[in-house]
């Protein structure tokens, strides 16, 4: 065992020094918001299987002010996930060739965000139709 104590630079908070990496850490962390919501949904699936009283209990829990507040935070995280997921789409997918030219990154992100908005609205319309 060596007695030497070479200086090793601490890596604590390395990402806080550069706005690019701060954004990276924020967009990576949005996955936790999405997963947290999916666990809430999973509890809902289990409660649904336990009968009407259990399901109504889950619905009542979802009505508590704390739950609504938490869901507002989760919504912000999920929206940022959608934005960042499509923002990096131009570097995560193969180039899209339109009319013999590579599609501009901004155009690709814009198109994908429009598709995401349309998908969300279609889901809302479908839920509306089932609910009526």
């Amino acid at each position: 065992m060596s007695k030497r104590k070479p200086y090793v630079r601490s890596m604590d908070g390395w990402w806080k020094k550069n706005p690019y990496f701060v954004e990276y850490m924020i967009h990576e962390s949005t996955a936790l918001f999405v997963a947290a919501y999916c666990l809430v949904l999973l509890v809902g699936v289990i409660r649904l299987g336990q009968g009407e009283a259990a399901w109504n209990g889950w619905l009542a829990a979802m009505q508590s002010p704390l739950s609504v507040l938490c869901h507002l935070v989760l919504l912000a995280g999920a929206v940022y996930h959608t934005y960042s997921w499509f923002k990096i789409l131009p570097i995560t997918m193969p180039p899209v060739i339109v009319g013999g030219k590579k599609m501009a990154p901004e155009a690709l992100t814009g198109t994908a965000l429009a598709v995401a908005a349309a998908a969300g609205l279609a889901l809302l319309a479908l839920v509306w139709r089932i609910a009526l």
């Binding site: 919501y37 609504v68 919504l75 997921w85 998908a119 969300g120």
Partner: peptide, 16 residues
């Protein structure tokens, strides 16, 4: 990315 924001809005905010 496509569906979760709207699902959170529906099940966590609009319906409650």
């Amino acid at each position: 990315a496509l569906f979760v924001p709207m699902m959170i809005f529906i099940t966590g905010i609009a319906v409650p």
